[in-house]
């Protein structure tokens, strides 16, 4: 009898842990948000959307943000497809409210309650968030409503466990972008919102979305991804260690980031995006910040 009780309580605890670990949906936070379009800068919104959202949602065949199969995410996690975020009322986000858009970007919780950890930008400034939302509402060809349907994400059991281990990020408001002249703070802000740390730290499962510097192996590379052929790609170390980017000049870094050509003419192709729209000031700030973080010894083969 005692053994049965122990067995049943053990089983219940395990089930509770599994159910908690696989929690995939959440209630949206009860917050007020309305975009003040009059103060929005739509052209800046386009640049930011291209840099932040385009990496996952841009489909070169439609030349719009109609979503694509994210083949860089290993199959073991399932099939991950980024959504159509053009302003089409059925296939896109045309009927999303401002609050729903702001919520999915800040917390990762979509309108239907799904948690999309790839989306989370909890530290994005109010201004940048507003500019992005204003651009997504515009009639620019890249976001003008398209019926294109990229399909639906289907996580494997392991994928569900991985998503289940992620949590929504807190809703914050009143966030200001660091002054652009404060290179280190601005560089960190960019690394955060461009999600460089997501791929260039040790593992997607061990990143800290709120305090990015607490991510395991922060910017030290070693995360395993795939290219379009399904070949393994290990992300490089971007810390100022000799196994990272020690010895690089700002020009080397700028060329790598904007032109896809690394030091010694190595080609930076998919899954590394080309950030052609970054300004010189932004690149300079990112580089300065990377020079300031703790060096990590992590030699990546072929880098």
């Amino acid at each position: 009898m005692k053994n049965s009780i122990l067995y049943i309580s053990g089983l219940s605890m395990m089930m509770a842990i599994v159910i908690t670990a696989c929690k995939m949906t959440y209630d949206a936070p009860d917050v007020q948000y309305t975009a003040n379009y009059e103060s929005a800068d739509v052209s800046e919104g386009k640049r930011l959307t291209t840099l932040v959202c385009g990496v996952c949602h841009y489909d070169p065949t439609t030349e719009k943000l109609t979503g694509v199969h994210m083949v860089d995410i290993p199959d073991i996690l399932g099939t991950v497809i980024s959504s159509n975020i053009t302003n089409h009322p059925e296939k896109g986000i045309g009927t999303y409210t401002d609050k729903e858009l702001a919520t999915v970007i800040r917390t990762g919780i979509a309108r239907d309650g799904r948690l999309i950890p790839f989306m989370q930008r909890p530290n994005m400034s109010d201004d940048d968030l507003l500019n992005i939302i204003a651009y997504l509402r515009s009639d620019d060809p890249m976001v003008n409503g398209s019926e294109s349907d990229p399909g639906k994400t289907k996580y494997s059991r392991i994928g569900k466990m991985a998503i289940g281990s992620s949590k929504p990020t807190d809703w914050n408001q009143g966030i200001e972008r660091p002054d652009r002249s404060d290179k280190l703070a601005f560089g960190k802000y960019l690394i955060d919102n461009l999600a460089c740390y997501d791929c260039h730290s040790k593992s997607f499962a061990k990143v800290d979305k709120i305090n990015i510097e607490k991510s395991k192996g922060f910017m030290g590379g070693g995360n395993k991804m795939l290219n379009k052929n399904g070949d393994k790609v290990i992300t490089p170390n971007l810390t100022p260690h000799e196994t990272g980017i020690a010895g690089w000049t700002e020009e080397d870094f700028a060329k790598a980031v904007t032109q896809g050509i690394s030091k010694n003419n190595r080609i930076l192709a998919y899954p590394m995006p080309s950030y052609a729209d970054l300004t010189e000031k932004e690149i300079s700030a990112i580089f300065a910040y990377l020079q300031s973080i703790p060096p990590i010894k992590n030699a990546i083969k072929g880098r």
Binding site: P60, T61, N227, K228, N229, I267, A269, Y270
Partner: peptide
Amino acid sequence: AYACNNCHGNKGDNLG
């Protein structure tokens, strides 16, 4: 060698 296949695919039918 120039990583064209990374995006375009080995048969060039992934992109473009």
